[in-house]
């Protein structure tokens, strides 16, 4: 067991996953923590990014073009989900966005010609950029850290800007914000596109990291639960919280592997542990590790 932990390959894999989920958590936090809506469609954006990236990359598109295209495709889907839903009451947004995750999953599983359905797409290459080969695990980790850091920096600048301040007024009080002359629908749409874009970028990084995407149950509710737990555990509305949350939950995810249980029980035990963590956080300490008090979630 110890040997497995100190195995550098294992640690590199662990860190790469953590970095990817930090970006997923942070991008979802824009919606949950800043405009105060529960978006359950994030996994759908992630999947759209991953498949767009994969299909383009495997048809010979340049790495950066494919990665950005994944983000843009996810961003467009964010726009398409946002337009009909973002004027709705919050419960309905939660349900409609869950429906979106379901639609994307259903398309992924059934559009066999494009996605190979439940078989998934194997053999997704890792890039060679300016002659540097990123196919090694460590090299790919470094590339992932660079891309995720740039993404986080962009999100950080935006959230700390006057633009981000307007998002917070939406979370605090939509009616007051409207009465001050803010076109809140426009801001909500922008936030949705931004959030979806970076979920799409995370999808691209994810696809090349595993060199495979798809399979039954991928990009569906278990992952949604995980990302939601990352956000809530780290703290809604906290930039660093999502990163801490990703680290904490990835550690827990991996720790379950070392429990003395049968291999078939590892998956459900992992799921049970996130579910328990999510339930406990919401009951005992809904602001998470680093979050602030948010009306939508607390008294």
């Amino acid at each position: 067991m110890l040997a497995a932990i100190v195995n550098p390959g294992y640690i590199i894999g662990f860190l790469t996953n953590m970095v990817i989920f930090a970006l997923l958590g942070l991008s979802l936090n824009i919606i949950i923590g800043y405009i105060g809506y529960l978006n359950l469609g994030h996994v759908g954006f992630w999947a759209i990014g991953a498949y767009t990236y994969t299909l383009l990359l495997m048809n010979g598109t340049n790495y950066f073009v494919a990665l950005l295209a994944g983000g843009v495709a996810a961003g467009i889907s964010g726009l398409l989900l946002g337009i009909p839903t973002l004027k709705l009451k919050s419960h309905y947004i939660a349900i409609a966005s869950l429906g979106f995750t379901y639609i994307v999953y259903s398309l992924v599983i059934n559009l066999n010609d494009l996605t190979r359905g439940p078989l998934g797409i194997p053999g997704i290459p890792r890039p060679v950029i300016f002659g540097i080969d990123f196919s090694g695990d460590l090299a790919y980790l470094i590339l992932s850290i660079i891309i995720v850091s740039i993404s986080c920096l962009i999100i950080y600048i935006l959230l700390r800007s006057p633009w981000g301040r307007i998002l917070e007024t939406i979370r605090e009080d939509e009616i007051a914000s409207k009465s001050l002359g803010k076109n809140i629908f426009k801001y909500k749409i922008q936030a949705f596109i931004l959030s979806a874009f970076f979920a799409g970028i995370a999808g691209g990084i994810f696809a090349s990291f595993h060199e495979y995407i798809g399979g039954p149950g991928a990009f569906f509710l278990p992952q949604l639960l995980f990302i939601l737990s990352v956000v809530m555990m780290g703290g809604a509305g906290s930039f660093w919280g999502s990163i801490v949350g990703a680290a904490a939950l990835m550690t827990m995810y991996e720790a379950v592997r070392f429990l003395p249980i049968e291999a078939t029980l590892v998956g459900p035990t992992q799921q049970a542990s996130f579910a328990l963590v999510l339930i406990l956080i919401m009951i005992i300490h809904p602001r998470g590790i680093m979050g602030r008090k948010i009306k939508t979630f607390q008294k």
Partner: peptide, 28 residues
């Protein structure tokens, strides 16, 4: 009262000001 309670008092005023640079690109 409808104030933005979990924002700073100053920011409550700042967001209302007319020339608040609140466009997305202005963040950069």
């Amino acid at each position: 009262i409808r104030i933005f309670s979990e924002m700073k008092t100053l920011d409550n005023i700042v967001v209302a000001l007319k020339d608040h640079p609140e466009k997305m690109y202005q963040a950069f």
